[in-house]
């Protein structure tokens, strides 16, 4: 995970299928063990369950503190599901995959 990744949205190429698109935003503050773990966990979960239809944006609040207000961020790391609506928030290092999936409302691929 490079700092470029941390501060700019990581565009994952995806086919324009017209189906559900997942826009995820991960708020962190610097590269702490928790934020690194959260990003790694998220990446893993998305690859497994949302392959090809997700987009992760990592926002470092140390760089852009004003952004914390818009998504009502308190705890870090926080994962925000911007799309699909409604907005959902998951806080913590995302180590519990089950709970992340419940929080994101992702039905596991059968």
């Amino acid at each position: 995970m490079s700092s470029a990744v941390m501060n700019s949205p990581e565009k994952v190429p995806q086919p324009d299928t017209g189906i559900e698109k997942w826009m995820l935003r991960l708020y962190v503050a610097g590269q702490t063990p928790k934020s690194i773990a959260a990003f790694a966990n998220l990446k893993k979960i998305c690859e497994e369950h949302l392959e090809g239809k997700y987009q992760i944006e990592v926002i470092d609040l140390l760089v852009n503190p004003t952004l914390a207000k818009d998504d009502q961020i308190l705890a870090l790391p926080t994962l925000v599901r911007k799309l699909p609506e409604p907005v959902k928030k998951i806080i913590g290092d995302l180590s519990n995959t089950e709970r992340v999936l419940v929080g994101l409302d992702v039905r596991p691929v059968s």
Binding site: L62, Q72, A75, P77, I91
Partner: peptide, 27 residues
């Protein structure tokens, strides 16, 4: 600054801290 907390919107998974709040207050 209005800080909105709604339990139903938040899922907790693993370790976290309130650095976000600190950053907001500090900013």
């Amino acid at each position: 600054d209005y800080v909105h907390i709604e339990k139903s919107e938040i899922e907790e998974t693993g370790e976290y801290d309130l650095e976000g709040l600190f950053i907001r207050i500090g900013h």
